[in-house]
């Protein structure tokens, strides 16, 4: 038997993806980060003049940034912290001795990120539609693709942090970075609205690129090539770093 007593690989990965998704959704703090804060941000931006001029209507200007924030919450902060503590408790070591293996673990986590992201998309997108959100139809598919690419980049970044420092440090770093990038990382507020000296740096951040790319797609139905390229580079760099330096124990 080529697989011995192992269940088929796809079944193992899907099963672990489901398991990780339930674990993430059961975690209260994670839900606050994943759903409550983005919805609060959505209301904040939709009912204030912070983004006036970015799009014709405030809600249309707000939603792309909030979706980008969802990606960062789930893929980077939430998943990074969970992985950091899994590493501390030896969970990664144990599961990597089962037929799931290390690759299966990472794929399972990626599935969980996408699944939680889907839940966020439904909640945030649904709320936004109720508030009158009208995304540019021609940009919706591109927007979904950018969300997935952003999830890949931030998952890799989260795994890189979680796999190299202590879980307490992962907790501190990913939360701090989340707050910083949410505030001045070009996610909710476009880089062009930030002080001029910061702008070039912000555009090169994965957060800035994801925010800009999503705004171009969902507001104008346009592909922002620079943002796409920057996100791709971040995914590859962080993916390489995580693979290279991840310590399993």
């Amino acid at each position: 038997m080529p697989e011995g007593n192992a269940a088929p690989q796809v079944a193992r990965i899907l099963r672990h993806g489901g398991y990780e998704t339930r674990a993430m959704l059961r975690n209260g703090e994670q839900l606050v980060l994943a759903v409550v804060l983005p919805v609060m941000a959505l209301f904040g931006l939709a009912f204030t003049g912070l983004l006036d001029g970015v799009a014709d209507r405030r809600i249309d200007a707000a939603v792309p940034g909030v979706l980008a924030l969802c990606v960062m919450s789930t893929a980077f902060t939430g998943q990074g912290i969970a992985t950091g503590f899994d590493r501390r408790y030896g969970v990664l070591r144990f599961l990597s001795t089962t037929p799931l293996g290390r690759a299966g673990l990472v794929f399972g986590k990626a599935i969980a990120v996408v699944a939680v992201l889907a839940v966020q998309l439904v909640v945030v997108g649904g709320t936004a539609l109720a508030l009158g959100w009208q995304p540019q139809p021609s940009g919706i598919l591109l927007g979904l693709f950018l969300l997935l690419l952003g999830a890949a980049a931030f998952t890799a970044l989260g795994l890189w942090v979680a796999g190299t420092v202590r879980p307490e440090a992962t907790l501190a770093i990913t939360n701090l970075v989340w707050v910083l990038l949410a505030a001045v990382g070009g996610i909710l507020i476009p880089g062009t609205r930030l002080p001029a000296p910061m702008q070039p740096a912000v555009e090169l951040l994965p957060s800035g690129a994801l925010g800009d790319g999503l705004r171009a797609a969902l507001i104008e139905g346009r592909l922002d090539g620079a943002a796409l390229a920057i996100l791709l580079v971040w995914s590859l760099l962080a993916g390489f770093a995580a693979t290279r330096w991840f310590k399993w124990n």
Binding site: G4, N5, A6, Q9, R12, T97, T98, L100, G101, G104
Partner: peptide, 9 residues
């Protein structure tokens, strides 16, 4: 995974 499926840890 074939080997891992035959070993418990």
């Amino acid at each position: 995974s074939r080997l891992r499926s035959r070993v418990g840890v």
